[in-house]
Design a protein around this nucleic acid. Sequence first.
DNA 1: GTAGGGTTAG
Length: 797
Amino acid sequence: MKNTLDIRTVANRYAAQLQLCCSHRSSSYCIARTIHAHMIASGFKPRGHILNRLMDIYCKSSNIAYALHLFNKIPEPDIVARTTLIAAYSTAGNLKLAQEVFGGTPLSTRDTVFYNAMITAYSHNNDGHAAIELFREMRRDDFRPDNYTCTSVLGALALIVEDEKHCQQMHCAVLKSGTVFVTSVLNALISTYVKCASSPLASSSLLMGAAKKLFDEMPKKDELTWTTMITGYVRNNDLDAAREILDGVTENIGVAWNAMISGYVHHGFIHEALEMFRRMHLKGIQHDGFTYTSIISACANAGLFKHGKQMHAFILRTEEKHELEFSLSVNNALVSLYGKCGKVDEAREIFNKMPIRDLISWNAILSAYVNLGCIVEAKSFFKEMPERNLLTWTVMISGLAQNGFGEEGLKLFNQMRIEGFEPCDYAFAGAITSSAMLGALEHGRQLHAQLVKLGHDSSLSAGNALITMYARCGIVEAANCVFLTMPCLDSVSWNAMIAALGQHGHGLQAIELFEQMLKEDIVPDRITFLTILSACSHAGLVKEGHRYFNSMRGCYNITPGEDHYARLIDLLVRAGKFSEAKDVIQSMPFEPGAPIWEALLSGCRIHGNMDLGIQSAERLFELMPQHDGTYVLLSNMYATAGRQNDVAKVRKLMRDRGIKKEPGCSWIEVESKVHVFLVDDTVHPEVQAVYNYLEQLVLEMRKLGYVPDTKFVLHDMEEAQKESVLYTHSEKLAVVFGLMKLPLGATIRVFKNLRICGDCHNAFKFMSKVVGREIVVRDGKRFHHFRNGECSCGNYW
DNA sequence: GTAGGGTTAG
């Protein structure tokens, strides 16, 4: 007897403790866990309403898996347990399991609250029709709807109702239903009006007017009334009206301020949002995790790292430690802030300290690695991740693509589909960029077709990726076709198309498109100017390029960076205007760095300007002694001038410093497969046949006047030997392989990691004439179209 | 045990 009494006392005590911890909001999870641990340790087996309460707490702290574990231990779960479970599945987004629980519950044990939970589950998972249908069923089965039912049904209606007529019918139906108009129901009604107001089919002002009328007439407003009205105006783009509502709030209602802050952030008024927070703090308005996350993420997105960091410091100063520790979203926002501002170590530190993490936390770190180009870290982190979603995959795929790992990007895209994720347009954009990097035109085309099939063809990001893909695969016409048919364009689209024209040597067309962009009031950005300067440089349009450079500051308030100066210098020295280039360098507000000297050196090589060339190379040796390109350019310059002794000196310098020239590597796509050739390749299975065919071609080419140019051979050897070295160049092997394998007459498109060699450039001119086919080579810098003995670059590269 | 508003990743 005594024993049972004791158990009852203990149970009551636990129940009271759990009740208490539910009023403690964010710390409830940790306290509940402690209480639960205590139960287990003392041998107390929770049952009945204590178990239900525990389950509920675990569900609300996003630990649904554990809640389910508890549920499964109950032999005969009562209606309260079942209701909790439905709510849990609903928040987990698993409507199917919620339906199973609902269907498996006999009618005799159901109650109104149980129906409410299922109606809400449908509504939360965007199935308004099912929610309404269940409401009808509930009334047929003679269950009495209450205020909760009414509010949930109104929420469901907001998903279905589209125009004002529909909305007013709904309002009348609510009036007739005999509902008691308590605040919560009126809030839901206002919310429905507000949601319908942003539908394109409805009149926004009419419905917002109706919402405002209800709002004004409400005898008793609670915090939700204020926030609903504020967000309503925010969503309908009336920030002033929203602000007016907030100014009418006299009580200490932090959530209303949060709604206003988030409204400012959404409309890009970051400084107004920050100012709101300042005022909120001064007035002693309660701020919480929502306030912090809004502010922090706004700072992260606007690049206001200092403000974000101040916010972090503020939180650490003012909040109880456990409040911050257990706030998942604040920590996620912080991780994302540090990650986006390039402080991946700090981001990782916060992540490591987080007691609970979700997919958002993992994805934030993954994007931080990817954005910084830390692909090795990103890859191992990706492997470690306990779960992945669509975003995880797209971040990783586009990260691989943008960092030049095209093949791995495509592999991952396929893997993603195998694992059952249907790619969204961003994922397609990543895969398309991967094909662009590889020059895998067939892959790119197939992706384009799938994109259309899955209905993503009007996507901006995918369209922009397609422009770049076709251009980088050598078909500027197809790029233009995508550009012209895209339903809407942004500055990225224009930049991509201008760059496409520039890379293919169509400088005048690039300029034309740039002018059209200006006419259509698209504001050019830093990237636009980089592309237009390159386009001018590739086509030798010195005057035009110089004029555009000068307009940057004056017309568009863009301060030219070192990269812009480098392209201007490149433009000038390619045209042999060395004294003008010197003037520009003199006028620069900073000391010339590596990009400037590189531009000078390559100009000097073209024009044989030895003194300045040597000076530039020496500066580059100081700035980046390990960079192989400088040695190659310098030795080519000596070779062209016939200074073989100096070529030998450069070679010795390279040897002494342990610098190896990056091996040349070229590739070509044949029947959707990418074939790679290295210099002096022995690996490709058909390379012997390639060498044989090349030999035959060279005989024909010589008849037309081709003379091998051994100046460009870096090694010291006999002349005849040097010639044979020329025939091992990777670009020659890839082109010849294409001639052997592709259908007769088809254009050969080859890609090379480095700049095309001078002899190969000359050889392809003759080759194009011998075989009567077009040969397109994309090298590290630009495109060369060889047709009938000429190259589109006009020997100007 | 159930509603209505405010947050976090490309």
